[in-house]
Design a protein around this nucleic acid. Structure first.
Lengths: 183, 183
DNA sequence: ATGATTCTGTTGGATATCCAACACTTTTGA
DNA sequence: TCAAAAGTGTTGGATATCCAACAGAATCAT
């Protein structure tokens, strides 16, 4: 469809940076990961990092975006399983950040995560519920992203159930309108 | 010792090309591997290939050089085990080429392999037998490289023993002078 | 506290890589 | 046999990446 050619150098470099970041995230908390750490691990120049990303938060955002697009490939069907997969991807990502209650960071991270959830939701809703207006879809995505993010935080706090067991029971109450339409 | 800084781009690119070549060598014979194949597999531009290598034979040569330097790291002791390791590396490499009796290629490949064996032998002999003149070492390396290459061809033809079983019995007859001096 | 160290984000110039051509040779296939 | 297709090796200009340097912010150590 839209195969806009990208310079192979940039796909290589972005992959190196993203992989380095993901790898580092398994080792230390986000707040302890510096741009220097990432570029050293990726074996690319620090200036090159800033050619691709605004700062470390931008990297976090695009990293999440990448994870979501990989874990939710070409899925256009709006159903419970899709939402469970999305929720699981979110909790996985937060677990990989392994950060808890760092004042000043939490807000930024939370906004980034919600924004990316919203992007996925808009995509899903646009593909499925084309009978809704753009504005309605946008608002639905917004409130649902807040809901899912809040649920992920609560899940992280309790840790009693698996992500799926945790979220599935309340799916019918989440974004009730489109679910009713398609089931 | 000699940490001459090299641009990280060239180490990346060379590694990509070498790995692509080694990977392709496991799939098809050397004669069927084109420069295009390698660059496509490595995901680098064809022009970049010629920035690093003269042609596909140059790549073959440097690939063997790389393999030898990896399989025979910092070994300076001139003894039977070292020669067995060298011989095994040669037969492994030839097996990975999986080429047999292609007129016109054989000569070039044989010369490349012998040259690289010779390089290793000169290094080993220089480190061990410093009581010999440069000219003597050079000539010893030359005749030994021919011997080892010939042995590897014979081994490839018969295939009856392991590389080690094949070569170890005749080691004392190979390059007898330095072996006597050090044992 | 304060000085030292480390990190950040940015810049200018050097260099490696990309890309699209080109002429030429080799291989393919009808 | 011949024409089309694919590979080779090279070139010039565009672009991504490197590198060294910088000032300012943040962190660390005493």
């Amino acid at each position: 469809m839209e195969q806009l050619k990208v310079d192979p150098r940039v796909v290589r470099t972005r992959k190196l940076i993203l992989n380095a970041f993901i790898h580092l995230s398994e080792t230390k908390e986000f707040k302890d990961i510096s741009v220097k750490d990432v570029t050293t691990e990726a074996q690319i120049n620090r200036a090159t990092f800033y050619y691709h990303f605004q700062d470390i938060y931008d990297l976090l955002e695009k990293s999440l975006s990448e994870v979501l697009s990989v874990k939710m490939p070409e899925v256009t069907s709006w159903n419970g399983d899709t939402l469970v997969a999305l929720f699981s991807a979110i909790t996985d990502f937060q677990a990989s950040l392994s950060t808890r209650c760092h004042r000043g960071y939490e807000d930024t991270i939370a906004r980034i995560i919600r924004d990316q959830i919203e992007v996925v939701l808009v995509r899903l809703l646009s593909a499925e519920a084309n009978y809704l207006s753009k504005e309605t879809i946008s608002l639905l995505a917004t409130i649902t992203s807040w809901s899912l993010y809040g649920a992920s935080m609560e899940w992280k706090r309790t840790q009693s159930l698996s992500a799926e067991e945790f979220i599935r029971p309340i799916l019918p109450h989440l974004v009730a309108i489109p679910l009713i339409q398609t089931q």
